[in-house]
C-alpha cells in the first residue's frame, strides 16, 4: 500500500511549535482529514484538530495544506505526488490554541455587530426566485473562515481592530440585498466594517470552498453602494433633488 508523508504542525501558545512527520497508508479516494484521523486513531491520540461533517458542509476543518488555505475534508491525497511531503499547518490569521486548532472567536464577535434582517411590517412575503439568487449565493457560506485567514488585511496587516473581513461582507450583503429588507448597513460597513481596507485582491474568492464570488458579487457590490453614499457627488445631488419632491 502506498504511504504518504505528512508534516503536521504541533504546538501550543506557550511552547514553540514544531513539525512532526508521520507516515500514513493511503487508500483510494482518501482526503487529508482521513490521514489526520489515521494519525489520531493509530499514531498520536493527542493531535488536536477540529472537524464535524467531513463533507464540506460545516467548515470546521480549515487548515493550510502545503501553504494553501483549504478544507482538509475536501483536499484529496491523490493530488500529491508519491513521496511528496505534505505540510499541514493551522490557519495563520487566528491565535493558536493547539496543533491545528485556532481561536476564531474574533469572527463571532464581528458577527454580533451586523444589524439583523429587518423586513417591512407590511411585507407580503411574495418574492421571486430572481430576487434571491444573489442572496442565496451568499447564504451558502459555511463559515470555514478560510477567506478571513487568507485576507492580507487580517493576515499580514493585522487590522482586526478596524476590518471585519470578507466573511462578514458576504454576510452583510446577504441581508442588505434581501428583497424585503429595509435596513441600511452601508454607513456601518464603511465606518466600522472597514470596507475601504479591502483592495479587492480576490484571495478570499480563490480559497472559498463554496465557490462564492465573494469579491465580485458581495464586496464590490457593497463598495459601489458606499460610493453612492460617500463618493459620488452626482448621486448625492440626485438624492437631494428627489428628496425635495
Amino acid at each position: 500500500m502506498r504511504e504518504a508523508i505528512l508534516k503536521v504542525f504541533r504546538g501550543t501558545p506557550v511552547e514553540a511549535g514544531k513539525f512532526i512527520t508521520y507516515k500514513v497508508p493511503v487508500e483510494e479516494g482518501m482526503v487529508v482529514l482521513d490521514a489526520i484521523h489515521y494519525i489520531q486513531g493509530y499514531l498520536d491520540p493527542e493531535l488536536s484538530v477540529r472537524w464535524n461533517c467531513k463533507a464540506a458542509k460545516c467548515g470546521s476543518c480549515s487548515a493550510e495544506v502545503n501553504g494553501d488555505p483549504s478544507l482538509m475534508c475536501k483536499t484529496r491525497m491523490d493530488q500529491f505526488a508519491e513521496g511528496e511531503e505534505i505540510t499541514i499547518e493551522p490557519i495563520k490569521t487566528f491565535p493558536l490554541i493547539k496543533d491545528l486548532v485556532t481561536d476564531v472567536s474574533f469572527n463571532y464577535e464581528v458577527n454580533k455587530q451586523i444589524p439583523p434582517f429587518c423586513p417591512a411590517d407590511d411585507a407580503t412575503w411574495i418574492f421571486k426566485q430572481e430576487d434571491i439568487d444573489r442572496v442565496q449565493e451568499f447564504r451558502k457560506c459555511i463559515e470555514c473562515f478560510l477567506c478571513q485567514d487568507v485576507c492580507h488585511v487580517l493576515r499580514d496587516h493585522e487590522r482586526k481592530d478596524a476590518f471585519w473581513g470578507p466573511r462578514f461582507f458576504v454576510r452583510s450583503a446577504g441581508v442588505e440585498m434581501h428583497p424585503l429588507d429595509c435596513g441600511n448597513r452601508i454607513p456601518l460597513l464603511e465606518e466600522q466594517g472597514g470596507l475601504g481596507f479591502c483592495n479587492i485582491t480576490k484571495c478570499c474568492t480563490e480559497v472559498c470552498p463554496e465557490e462564492i464570488h465573494i469579491t465580485d458579487n458581495a464586496i464590490i457590490a457593497l463598495k459601489e453602494r458606499v460610493v453612492d453614499e460617500y463618493h459620488d457627488p452626482l448621486a448625492a445631488l440626485l438624492r437631494r433633488v428627489f428628496k425635495g419632491k
Binding site: F9, G11, T12, P13, V14, E15, A16, G17, G67, E89, P90, K92, P95, L96, I97, D103
Partner: peptide, 9 residues
C-alpha cells in the same frame, strides 16, 4: 490562556 501566537510562518 496566553494569547501569544506562535505562528508557523
Amino acid at each position: 490562556m496566553n494569547q501569544t501566537t506562535t505562528s508557523p510562518v
